[in-house]
């Protein structure tokens, strides 16, 4: 029982710990930060909804190794992203680039806000032109001049 609890505690702790690797990949904190940032922008294609930073799949491990080597070789962010998309396509990127087939994806939030705004304006204008027929009974009676 106690062992069970210990194992459970370890698993909980593990999930809070750094997701990637057992030790930092780089001695230089700036390089390590860069490595972790890029790893969070690349998709693990074996598990689809995880980044390679979060995944323990063997392909994610391999891609992290490639990423470490590319950073160590002094490649720029753009060069690294090109390396990945040349092999795996745009799907490997968590932030897809704006292209003819993705513009709707990127424009959707703005379009939705705009569309909602237009509908709101139309409804408000229309309502404001309606007679105020929801006045209390006696007010309406007074307004119409009846006794």
């Amino acid at each position: 029982m106690r062992i069970c609890a210990a194992v459970l505690a370890c698993m909980l702790l593990a999930s809070f710990a750094h997701a990637i690797d057992t030790a930092p990949a780089f001695a230089d904190p700036a390089q390590q930060a860069r490595y972790e940032r890029i790893a969070r922008e690349l998709r693990c294609l074996q598990c689809r909804s995880e980044t390679i930073a979060d995944s323990n799949a063997s392909l994610a491990e391999d891609l992290r190794r490639q990423l470490r080597e590319l950073i160590a070789a002094g490649k720029t962010d753009a060069e690294i992203m090109t390396y990945m998309t040349d092999r795996y396509g745009d799907y490997v990127l968590y932030r897809p680039p704006v292209k003819s087939n993705t513009w709707l994806l990127w424009a959707a939030p703005a379009l939705l806000v705009l569309g909602g705004g237009v509908i709101a304006v139309v409804v408000i204008l229309r309502k404001s032109k309606l007679p105020d027929d929801d006045l209390p009974e006696d007010d309406r009676a007074r307004g119409s001049g009846a006794p």
Partner: peptide, 13 residues
């Protein structure tokens, strides 16, 4: 063994 060529070929499964 290391899966390097597979990455060059865009193998994911």
């Amino acid at each position: 063994q290391e899966g390097r060529v597979a990455i060059d070929w865009g193998v994911y499964g």
